[in-house]
Amino acid sequence: MKTAIVTAEKRVEHITTEVPIMNISNLNVYSKSAHILKNINITIPKNKITVLLGPSGCGKTTLLKCMNRLTDLYSELRLDGTIEIDGQNILTERNRITEIRQKMGLVMQRPYPLPMSIYDNIAYGLKLKGVRDKNVIAEKVEKHLREVALWDEVKDRLKSSAQRLSIGQQQRLCLARGLAVEPEIILADEPTSALDPISSRVIEEQFSKLKDDYTIIMVTHILRQAKRLADYVVFMYYGEIIEHGNAADIFENPQTDILKEYMRVGH
């Protein structure tokens, strides 16, 4: 009885301190033959780590790609519903799509460094933003490489190709590259799936630190990772949101059989 009251209080407190950064309502995504996302309704809280959890192929990555409109690249996809960021529906936006994408940094399953030097990988986004001053660029390159704990490893070879870094370093470089455009949100799609445990831990540690300044939305199918990082969990299954809420509540007290099963198998 007592514990129930405590959780209820916690929940109330949690909701009142949350500031929403993104509102997704009635989002449906169809391909030619399938209904990929079904009636998605969620609010993403600011400065928290929101984890999209679920088995492979349940639509997590598609949902993530909707958020920065990379779905535009796939002409067979049809979207309806709204995704609001700063009160503006990004799905109907035509002209300011590059600005919208710069509000979000993307970290992918495998690192894809741009075919240029380490320095230019970070400077790329800045130059696109119109930053021309070389000193400002150099300053920011250093700042963001430090932010992902890569500066000391690469400071002597900034002009060498980014392809020569180890895969773990490349992933951190890709994170830094995303941070350089000063986004509000970091979108991460299974960011550690190609990495060894040590590099994975480095990335996870960065994420825990970064949430002070950024909102993080991370896709994962690794339950333990979700437990380590998540403040807020969205559990998806076959294109639907099955459960979502505060991480502690979701993991301690799953409501649906699917999530219970997923948590049982995931251990």
């Binding site: 920065n68 990379l70 690249l73 590059t98 600005e99 994408r101 710069q102 979000m104 940094g105 993307l106 992918m108 495998r110 894809y112 741009l114 075919p115 240029m116 790329y124 986004g125 696109l128 933003k129 890709c174 590259r177 995303g178 455009v181 979108l187």
Partner: peptide, 24 residues
């Protein structure tokens, strides 16, 4: 494809992505 997505996600236009990333 992901290389293109990376460039677009940084705010590049399609043409900028082709010019700076794909051609290189």
């Amino acid at each position: 494809v992901e290389l293109g997505e990376a460039s677009l996600s940084l705010g590049a236009t399609k043409w900028e992505t082709i010019k700076y990333v794909f051609l290189r």
